[in-house]
């Protein structure tokens, strides 16, 4: 089995899966009906991306494991989701900021992965990039709308940006599998995306009349290495509850 490729697919799939679950938790709770449907749509797109990567990971593992086993029967330390995707839905500002920071990153990552020499990865990336460009357009417009909105919306979106910024360093941390696979042209180094990501996010944050956080104490341990925030365990307990309780359930 190609361990690096397996781990890399988990890394890509897990971030989408965990973020998708966070969005699913928010279903029926958005400020109004239109937004509820729109954001749940984003969650479903992410779940589709996660399914594709986990399916491919299961194929690589080739021992009868399927994508559901990987999603619902893996332990916390085996997940490779980035910390930012795990952060709970404190309020709408956090949800939108978390989404915006990840959408900007994914738009760069997936456009690079469209050129991967691994056909499955480039195929998933080409399909996903269309969805991701739309996600980014939507979350970007919300950042600007909330930043330029009322005093209260401006204060809350700035607060969310300030609070979440400490997790952004992980986006540009190169995991072991990334380093190995990028030598072959299969993966892309996360560190190579940093400059453009900072351009995209700063431009929007400034346009919204907000400020980019400075002198941040970044998180030093990373989800890509299997070390997670205290939030992931609770999320998995809920997400995995049903398949663990009824292992053979069909629906």
């Amino acid at each position: 089995m190609n361990h690096n490729l397996f781990n890399y697919c988990l890394q890509l799939g897990d971030t989408s899966l965990i973020l998708s679950h966070r969005i699913a938790e928010y279903c029926s709770k958005a400020p109004h009906l239109e937004e509820d449907l729109a954001i749940t749509n984003v969650g479903l797109d992410l779940l589709g991306q996660a399914e594709s990567f986990l399916k491919y990971a299961a194929e690589i593992k080739n021992d009868g494991t399927n994508e559901d086993d990987l999603a619902y029967r893996r332990k916390e330390k085996d997940f490779k989701s980035i910390h930012l995707s795990e952060i709970p839905n404190f309020d709408f500002a956090f949800i939108i900021t978390r989404q915006f920071l990840i959408d900007a990153y994914n738009s760069l990552l997936f456009s690079k992965l469209s050129e991967s020499n691994d056909e499955t990865i480039s195929g998933i990336a080409k399909k996903s990039i269309k969805e991701i460009r739309y996600h980014l357009q939507r979350s970007k417009e919300w950042i600007i709308r909330l930043g330029q909105g009322t005093n209260e919306s401006n204060k809350r979106i700035q607060n969310a940006i300030d609070e979440l910024w400490m997790y952004t360093n992980e986006l540009f941390y190169d995991s072991e599998s990334e380093i190995e696979l990028s030598k072959e042209g299969t993966a892309t180094l996360s560190s190579a995306l940093e400059k453009e990501w900072r351009n995209i996010t700063s431009r929007t944050i400034l346009e919204a009349g907000l400020s980019v956080p400075e002198n941040i104490h970044y998180s030093l341990q990373y989800g890509k290495d299997g070390i997670h925030t205290e939030h992931l365990g609770y999320l998995l307990a809920e997400m995995q509850h049903l398949p663990l309780l009824y292992p053979d359930a069909k629906w």
């Binding site: 009906l33 239109e34 729109a38 749509n41 739309y134 709308r145």
Partner: peptide
Amino acid sequence: LHAYDKKMAMTSARDLYTR
């Protein structure tokens, strides 16, 4: 649909009516 501005109306229309 309800929306606060043109851009939001457009994205919501896309999400509500063209899925």
